[in-house]
Amino acid sequence: MKIEIFGSGCHRCVQVEKVVKGVVSELGFPISVEKVDDIARIVDAGILHTPGLRINGKMKCSGRIPKADDVKKWIIEERPQ
């Protein structure tokens, strides 16, 4: 399972990373979390509003800081059975 956080390093993007890392350590199964701060890659991914969050290549939210509960729900939805 792969989570990507897109953001060029501003305050909001750091917040998203914090929220996601918190949830991941709480859930405790193997998930790779990658912070993408290269602008070319952010644009290639089709993200307009940073921060963006993608789980297993699926766009989950952009332009806002998601709540921990939402992130947990998304991860559980995407978890391979």
Binding site: F6, S8, R12, V43, G46, I47
Partner: peptide, 12 residues
């Protein structure tokens, strides 16, 4: 609002 988010929007 945040200047760091302007370049991704420009690119998009």
């Amino acid at each position: 609002m945040c200047s760091c988010s302007i370049i991704p929007i420009f690119g998009g």
